[in-house]
Simulated assay, not measured.
Amino acid sequence: MTFKIFITGVTGYIAGDALYVLARKYPDFEYSALVRSEGSAAKVRAAYPAVRVVLGSLDDADLLRREAAWADLVLHAADASDHEGAARAIAAGLVEGHSEARPGYWLHTGGNGILTYFDTVEDRLGQPSDRVFDDLDGVEVLTSLPDEAFHRNVDKIVLECGVAHASTVRTAIVCPPTIYGNGRGPVSGRSRQCYEMAKVILTRGYIPIIGTGQAKMGDVHIQDLTEAYVLLIEAALSGNASPELWGARGYHLTVTGEHTWGPLARTMAVKAQEMGLVKSDGELAEYKMDKEEALKTAGFEAISWGLNARCKGLRLPKFLGWKAEHPSLEEEVPGILRSEAERLGLL
């Protein structure tokens, strides 16, 4: 029987890149993809004629339920960490459509924003932190964060589904940090945090710094992140039901590196000048931002330049051999600047 995958978010950065790899590596799989508009659907069909496009939105609960029941595996990446209704619909469909003889798998895309909880409650922005999370010995900390934590409401739906229906639905939360690198999807291949920082440097000609600039966050190349999804899909395909991958302990921090926001901004600025993308008689000036100004400058992406989300991704390396294969964030800085300059018409 052909393995069936339902994907949300293929017009976006994460799932777009995942589909690019899956369609080439497993062309005989059956794929269905949720797409919101006919214009985007045409681009998906042009790139992947064999993919069954499903027109609809995350608010279409009945549609999501039907597709989740149909699929052997759901890869949910479209506003996955914040849309509670979509998560409930996917959970319901997986439960309704699967059995112990034919279990369903759910790869849910979370986000490291949940790890910024302590900065938020302690009213700390742009300050260093020694708190480091890990998904191996510290997985219970991740799965029991306070209900007020960013993304926690949706995480709970996924975790509860994977525990209450462990024999029929196997869930894994994939929790990426700052992502970088050009995506290979049919519509959008752009990430946010680092690219918005590059945009500010290129268009405003200053170095954005939040607080002391010493907040730290994990990072991962988009192609390494995609490999994490592929490895989990291959585990599902092989029937690997290890409790170290799914359910109560199925929480995977897909992090391969760490950066400090202030030094990253300075590195970007120096490289932008070296590449001739910013004209200046001397070094670019640093511009200190508070929360309100950061929001006005680049929305929540700019706020994140002052938040800590330090973590170690140990579970996937230990149980599936996942590792970094692509350039580090610092090595990718010229590529980030170049792609953003091209998007802005500066090249």
Rank of each mutant, 00 (worst) to 15 (best):
W70M: 03
S57A: 06
D147L: 11
K296D: 11
A298N: 03
G257R: 04
M275Y: 00
S37W: 10
K296S: 08
L231E: 05
S81E: 14
D60K: 04
V278R: 04
Y48D: 05
I5E: 10
A265M: 08
L295W: 14
E96R: 03
V132I: 13
M275H: 01
A236L: 06
T120H: 12
D59A: 15
D59N: 12
A23G: 08
V163I: 11
I179G: 05
D17T: 15
A80V: 00
R24F: 06
W261E: 02
A50M: 09
G257K: 04
I14D: 01
E301K: 07
H98N: 03
V54G: 05
G97R: 12
Y20T: 13
G218E: 10
E96Y: 13
E286M: 02
R204W: 00
E148V: 15
D290W: 11
E330A: 15
I14Q: 06
Y287M: 14
P177L: 12
V74M: 01
M275I: 08
T11W: 11
S280V: 02
L107E: 08
G113N: 04
K271N: 02
K296F: 02
D17I: 10
R124F: 04
T203V: 03
E30D: 13
L347E: 14
L314Y: 03
D281L: 13
F3T: 04
I5H: 10
V333A: 01
T267M: 09
R24L: 15
T8M: 09
A302I: 09
T120P: 02
G250Y: 01
E292L: 10
V74G: 00
Y229K: 06
T8H: 08
R204S: 05
I173Y: 07
H326Y: 15
F3W: 08
F118G: 05
D28T: 07
T143C: 15
L253P: 00
A215V: 09
L136E: 13
L55M: 05
S238Y: 08
A47S: 12
W322F: 12
T116P: 10
E293M: 13
I114L: 06
L75G: 06
L295K: 07
G306S: 06
K4V: 00
A166N: 06
Y13Q: 08
A77H: 04
H108Q: 09
F6W: 02
P103I: 09
G9L: 04
E234F: 01
L115Q: 03
V141G: 15
V220Y: 12
R192Q: 11
G110E: 12
I210H: 13
H326M: 10
T254C: 04
I179T: 06
D137V: 14
D60H: 03
D224S: 12
L64A: 05
E283N: 09
I173P: 14
T2D: 13
A46H: 08
L34G: 07
P128T: 13
L202C: 07
A265R: 03
G250W: 01
G185E: 00
D130R: 00
L202W: 02
V163R: 15
T178H: 07
Y117K: 01
S81M: 14
L347Y: 08
G321E: 07
Y229Q: 08
D62V: 06
A285F: 14
P128F: 11
K323N: 12
